[in-house]
């Protein structure tokens, strides 16, 4: 299946390991990703907070470019980009056709399915206890996302279980990490990210799995600050779900860019006999 691929800005910067692992995993599952040519930034929280027309225009340009690729589906690993693009597609559908927009987690769990995901596993992630963390925009707003449950999502849990890992039941699956405030109001990210970490820790998770560059950056890079604020040591690695898929599919930790994570995941993986 050939799918248009919209990486988004973070995937060229802080989340390059998400991009690399996503491409490799998709290839393994038989998805041919074709990058949307000359794509632009969706404007993220910045644009929609300042001007509604601007944010619409930015996503409309991307959607029009996808339209010229003559592909039925476009996928993006970033929930922010995906919700903007889905919004644009909803408007375009009113005036004719538009390609189907799917977040990468949605593409893999709906178009491939857990059985297919499981059948490619070479090295099961046995014994790894994970908290699947979806954050806000993978499933919300539900009228636009049209994927999974907005508050009790399960798709990533099932995917991780198909890789042989365990997932914990916990309270903060779809709570916000502080989103765009990492630089401008850091205390909000330390507060909300801290709540997410505490909940995952309480539930007995050994690591988190995420599907969003903002979630990864906020929970991973601010973890030390959270720990010193709360006086608790969490030491919870924050993986992109695609990195975990890659490990289970036999890719090396180098190919999955695991050393790029700030909370070092290698000791945990060695302890579990995964590396």
């Amino acid at each position: 299946m050939i799918v248009a691929y919209y990486p988004g800005c973070s995937l060229e910067g802080v989340a390059r390991e998400y991009d690399r692992s996503a491409r490799l995993v998709c290839e393994r599952l038989g998805f041919g990703l074709q990058e949307v040519p000359d794509w632009n930034c969706c404007g993220a929280t910045a644009a929609h907070s300042l001007d509604h027309e601007l944010t619409r225009g930015l996503s409309a340009r991307n959607l029009a470019t996808v339209g010229r690729m003559n592909l039925a589906t476009v996928t993006t690993p970033c929930p922010g980009c995906s919700i903007r693009l889905k919004g644009a597609a909803m408007e375009a559908k009113k005036e004719g056709g538009a390609p189907e927009v799917m977040h990468l987690l949605q593409l893999l769990t709906e178009a491939a399915g857990t059985e297919k995901i499981a059948s490619s596993v070479i090295k099961p992630l046995g014994g790894l206890r994970l908290a699947a963390y979806y954050g806000c925009l993978v499933t919300r707003p539900r009228a636009v996302a049209r994927f999974d449950d907005p508050e009790q999502p399960r798709s990533m849990d099932r995917l991780l279980q198909a890789l042989g890992a365990e997932t914990v039941d916990w309270s903060h699956k779809a709570e916000c990490c502080g989103g765009a405030f990492a630089a401008s109001e850091t205390s909000i990210v330390v507060d909300l990210g801290g709540q997410v970490l505490e909940a995952a820790h309480q539930a007995g998770a050994e690591a988190l799995a995420v599907a969003c560059p903002m979630c990864q950056v906020n929970i991973d890079t601010r973890q030390r600050e959270v720990e010193s604020t709360r006086g608790v040591r969490y030491d919870l690695p924050v993986f992109y779900f695609t990195q975990l898929m890659g490990l289970a599919y036999g890719f090396t930790h180098r190919a999955m860019g695991l050393k790029r994570l700030l909370v070092n995941p290698l000791p945990l993986l060695k302890r579990k006999g995964i590396l």
Partner: peptide, 16 residues
Amino acid sequence: FYELMCSCVERRGRVS
């Protein structure tokens, strides 16, 4: 922060 991010998009089309 929002304005700087938008001006980044205005200059390059993407955020660095």
